[in-house]
């Protein structure tokens, strides 16, 4: 369990596991903290209630599952993004890398379903994601170039590469390939299950493992991390590999769901994933952020998008609303944080 979660959980319960004094001042602090940490859940609930009342077809199970399905691609990328942001980094290249990984997946998904082709169609995107992440990580951690610049560069370079490699989309993918993006177990779409598993895995890594602890420490104060004997470059490298892995997985789901591989896929996925993380309260300065909040951030974006479509809000207006909401969320988070100190 993350320390801030322990703190707020203790606060929310009105008593502490470590025997906090019951002073009113302490309780007030805990309340503010609870509001800060759970404000985003509150926002999601308010949105859901609002759309449920405003649009009858919003409050159906099918629509709920649809939202989850739509969120899953970005959600998985946002998980990787959260790792990079926690180390005070960023990965702008995710959308381009998704196009590269998806295209190579599609190339083999189009071919006869021999064992090798099926294996490549499923494994290659993951491998390419890892490779792209390693390229980012090597330059950032090894050469010490600013992650914003490096991933801005690979954002362009990856996109250029895949458009050069194959500008025409691949549509005629083999039917088996459909299962990952469009299949479901019971009523639950497989992408949603993958998102859930990834969330649980990331949650466990960040909150229960030494590696996760080091991610926060490296992001919070890299100098102190180095002085404490942590291999900082290796840690930095690793988060970009994790981000790449998430992108590869997401590319597989995305290509399968669309049953199409396109060089232009994922154009603004980087911005959506970053938005999910920061709406979830992750600090771009590193050391602060939670995986659960990132997922809730992604859900808020998904619910907004879905609800606004149902309200027949024109797409440009939707974009404006979502833009304003991103800024407002981060502004509010800052206010709540300040109030505590």
């Amino acid at each position: 369990m993350n320390e801030r979660e322990v703190w707020s959980r203790a606060g929310a319960a009105g008593g502490g596991e470590e025997g906090e004094p019951g002073a009113a001042a302490v309780r007030r602090v805990s309340l503010a903290t609870a509001l800060r940490d759970y404000g985003i859940y509150f926002a999601l609930v308010v949105l859901v209630i609002y759309f449920s009342l405003a649009v009858p077809q919003f409050r159906t199970t099918d629509n709920a599952l649809l939202i989850l399905l739509q969120v899953s691609t970005i959600g998985i990328i946002a998980i990787g993004m959260t790792f990079t942001i926690l180390t005070a980094g960023i990965d702008l290249s995710v959308g381009s890398l998704l196009a590269v990984a998806g295209m190579f997946s599609g190339v083999f998904a189009q071919k006869d379903p021999t064992t090798l082709n099926v294996f490549l169609a499923l494994a290659l995107p993951i491998f390419i994601g890892l490779l792209g992440g390693m390229i980012n990580g090597l330059v950032i951690a090894g050469a010490g170039v600013n992650p914003l610049i490096v991933t801005l560069g690979t954002l362009t370079a990856f996109r250029g590469f895949i458009v050069w490699y194959r500008v025409n989309p691949i549509y005629d993918l083999q039917p088996y390939y459909r299962i990952i993006g469009q299949g479901s177990i019971g009523p639950v779409p497989i992408p949603v299950i993958i998102l859930l598993l990834m969330t649980v895995a990331a949650y466990i890594i960040l909150n229960y493992t030494r590696y996760g602890r080091y991610v926060y420490v490296v992001g919070g104060n890299p100098e102190a991390a180095r002085a404490a004997g942590i291999n900082v470059p290796l840690m930095i490298f690793s988060v970009y590999v994790i981000s790449g892995f998430c992108v590869g997985l997401s590319a597989l789901i995305f290509t399968s769901r669309l049953m199409a591989a396109q060089a232009i896929s994922g154009q603004d996925f980087n911005l959506q994933a970053i938005a999910a993380a920061v709406v979830g309260g992750a600090s771009l300065f590193g050391g602060r952020g939670k995986i659960t909040n990132t997922i809730v951030g992604a859900l808020i974006m998904g619910v907004l998008f879905n609800g606004l479509v149902m309200l027949n809000v024109p797409a440009p207006i939707q974009q404006m609303i979502i833009g304003v909401i991103i800024i407002a969320a981060v502004w509010l988070d800052g206010i709540l944080r300040q109030r505590r100190h």
Binding site: R4, V6, W7, R213, Y216, V217, G220, N221, A224, G287
Partner: peptide
């Protein structure tokens, strides 16, 4: 070089 100030005492 010593503290990670936004993290907990325990960490």
């Amino acid at each position: 070089r010593g503290l990670v100030s936004m993290l907990s005492l325990r960490t």
